[in-house]
Design a protein around this nucleic acid. Sequence first.
DNA 1: TTAACTTAGTGTACAAGTTACACTTAATTT
DNA 2: AAATTAAGTGTAACTTGTACACTAAGTTAA
Lengths: 236, 236
Amino acid sequence: MTKKPITKNIDHFFRGAFSVDIVLITFHNQSLKLLLQKKKDLPIKEEWGLPGNLIDPNEDTNSAIDNLLLSLIGRNDIYKKQLRTFSELNRHPLGRIITFAYYGLIAFEEVKHINSPDLKWIPIKNPPSLSLDHNHILKEVFKRFQKGLLRHPNVFHLLPQKFILSDIISIYEQSFNQKMDLPNFRKLILKSGLVEPLGENNKGDKSFGRPAELFRYVKSEDKRKLKDKINFRFYA
Amino acid sequence: MTKKPITKNIDHFFRGAFSVDIVLITFHNQSLKLLLQKKKDLPIKEEWGLPGNLIDPNEDTNSAIDNLLLSLIGRNDIYKKQLRTFSELNRHPLGRIITFAYYGLIAFEEVKHINSPDLKWIPIKNPPSLSLDHNHILKEVFKRFQKGLLRHPNVFHLLPQKFILSDIISIYEQSFNQKMDLPNFRKLILKSGLVEPLGENNKGDKSFGRPAELFRYVKSEDKRKLKDKINFRFYA
DNA sequence: TTAACTTAGTGTACAAGTTACACTTAATTT
DNA sequence: AAATTAAGTGTAACTTGTACACTAAGTTAA
């Protein structure tokens, strides 16, 4: 059998570049926050955008995102997930640049020092208009963030080691812009076996109202997904 | 303000190519089937693989998948969805080729004529070993197919206009490799309002047992997702 | 110092959904 | 005509979800 020439396919190769962009989310002061970077070294007007970086031709996306995180927040051992690719032909003025969008979650404690003129935590509600197609990317990624909250115990990545139950509720209420019934929510969370009371309370930390018990997250032996343990009735 | 040179970024541009690959699924004879193509014009040994095509540099993925479907089954107006991108550095012997994986669903009626030495419907259980990383792609895409079945009324894309309820059950049982309780399943489906009895039965079509009622799919005015109407208790 | 307020946490009764399985019906096969 | 097969109905026991009233423990303000 004679091998066919493969030059037919070669026509389809062309010059392109890849980047990783991250939607990094944290929770502070009853409010979800997003890390934004001021973009100025691109041939576009100075604007805020999602932190990102171009990928080296022989680098894979995982090491690219690790390097990006290291340069942004000084660590890369946080919860992160690759979502979809944005590949529209004219999304970038420099040429065909395909971006891999990630999202990451981190407790505010770990990143509260980050606050410079070019890198800021911005409330995720009503973010400023972003550069390129980053508004679009943010919107899509936020939807995936929501889904993640419903299916996996991702809230805990946004909380400190010791947390109170109403912070969990607050994150869900904010993420879905919907009020929840606190008594019933407590029962669900407690029954799920995902949290364990520590026998301490947060008396010192707050101004009024009854002090709240502190809890910690327990990784469950139980392999069912969050949605099978806790039935959130406000699927987005 | 002086504009910075942008040459710094140009280093990251390199030669690459894109392709679309499709996992096309149908249902026939109580069995889920997958469309596979014999690969021979690649510098790899003759093997079965997912149907796919390289993308023209100025073509977007949607038109690429439409053209692919047209050449495979003669039409492109079927249910299809873009899933993730496979971009590992050495996934293809011809160079850095990034593939956009799609899946599509179609009723067997529409594609029963397809059967040539190079293009066949193969039972999705125990498929042959596929070329390149197509085993991996298939596995990932199949998971998404499963999720789609739980969240959206996708079964109906696999069924003819007139169908019987036990075909729906059969597709779910096969997809999740799990036996379901027929009486309870009927109640769920009927209550969902997704199907409507036609007042006909399938007496002619079968060998024994009581003839089954024929139903048709009714697009629901109700915007809730399938999972909120029907709670499948075998989440994968 | 005490009444009002604020947030945390418990209890409960009712409604709704899930599950298991017995039973009936309508056909074919032997 | 009895056995077999598959479709379809009914229901009782159980599990979950929902809506709130109520109790508890602190702070604020008169």
